[in-house]
Amino acid sequence: MTARNSDPTGLHRVLDETVVLPQAARRLDTRHELWPDEVRIRVEKLNLDAASYRQLERKHTAGDGSVDHGAIRAEVLDIVATRGKMQNPETGSGGMLVGTVEEVGPDSPLGLRPGDRVATLVSLTLTPLVIEDGLRDWDGRGEQVPCEGYAVLFGRSIAAVLPDDLPADLSLSVMDVCGAPALTARVVEGYDAPTVAVIGGGGKSGSLSLAAARRAGAGRTIGVVPHEREAARLREAGLADEVVIADARNPIGLRDAVTAAGGPADVTVVCVDVPGCEGGAILATADRGTVIFFSMATSFSAAALGAEGLAADVTMLVGTGYTPGHAAHALELLRDNAGVRRLFEARLAHEAPA
């Protein structure tokens, strides 16, 4: 097949002239045949990450506000065909997928078997991917993309077998953001009954992070949302002690809103998929507090320079999306918290094609 030896990071699939890891590569080798430590997945659905989909939606919105969903669909096809993976060139982000294990290499350490229905817990930005159906069953609306094709996992990839007690779409939505609640819980456990503010508390990662913070011992939880409609849903879900409406891009407005709700926060979790939220998150956080950035729209240079310019003594963490046990933890939160589950199911119903 090839003279190249496989590497558990997937380096052998990189087609760039320089040595880079698959996530940084311009193009990946998508050949069907497996190296000994790889696994091939028969894909049934992609889940585009929120920042990537919103950027595509903005790009293809006309002056009259209408969205060309066909152009979104065409661009996703072009990205995958050109790069051998789904990696939005503007945001640098991708998403994850659901599918069935088709073949397992004899040296694969992942513990998967042919026939297992799985969700990948590594980004599409580093996953070799081939779309074979032209996305004929996707109209370009929403982050979940029905798809026929295949993808390849490496020796250091991560995948979780889908649980039998939850619908696949629901499990996929949870696993897409499962890193956020796991890291939130870990950070909250390091404080004594902290005040926790979650910016974007009504979204997928935000609602799970609120639930995780409360379970981990938060003394007070504050959910920040952009408008009253989302605030009403979050209040009904009962996930936050206080729900406030603020534009996360307005640093003074965000600071004042969080302070009025009982802040500043000891832990601030940023779960919004729009740029420009770094300064407000820093200002809303108490000295010696922690800011966790769980958005691919974050400018980490803006965060670092902003904290310096504000003389803010805060720890800032990049949410990598991986914490040991993160998928099981997030699914447990969903099962045990009716408010979280209602929010997820409502989002899925809204994204479902008419």
Rank of each mutant, 00 (worst) to 15 (best):
V19G: 05
L21P: 08
Q23R: 14
A24R: 15
R27P: 03
L28T: 02
T30E: 02
W35I: 05
P36R: 07
E38A: 05
V43M: 10
E44I: 13
E44C: 15
L48W: 08
L48H: 06
D49F: 10
Y53T: 05
Q55Y: 14
T61K: 10
A62H: 13
H69N: 10
H69G: 06
A74P: 02
E75D: 08
D78C: 14
P106H: 15
S108T: 08
S108H: 08
R113N: 12
A119T: 09
T120I: 13
T127G: 11
G134K: 07
G134N: 07
W138I: 00
G142P: 01
E143A: 15
C147L: 02
Y150M: 00
G155E: 04
S157P: 01
L166Q: 13
L172W: 12
S173L: 11
D176E: 13
P181Y: 02
A182F: 06
A185N: 05
R186Y: 07
P194S: 05
A197M: 02
I199H: 03
K204W: 14
G206I: 04
V225A: 02
R229G: 13
R235P: 02
E236V: 09
A240H: 08
A246Q: 04
R255D: 01
R255K: 09
T259P: 06
G262V: 00
V269Y: 03
C271V: 05
P275I: 01
E278Q: 12
T285F: 00
A286V: 12
R288M: 14
V291A: 02
V291E: 01
S299C: 03
A302S: 14
E308A: 15
D313Q: 13
T323G: 08
P324L: 06
A327N: 12
L334E: 03
A338C: 08
A338P: 10
G339K: 11
E345T: 08
E351L: 11
P353S: 02
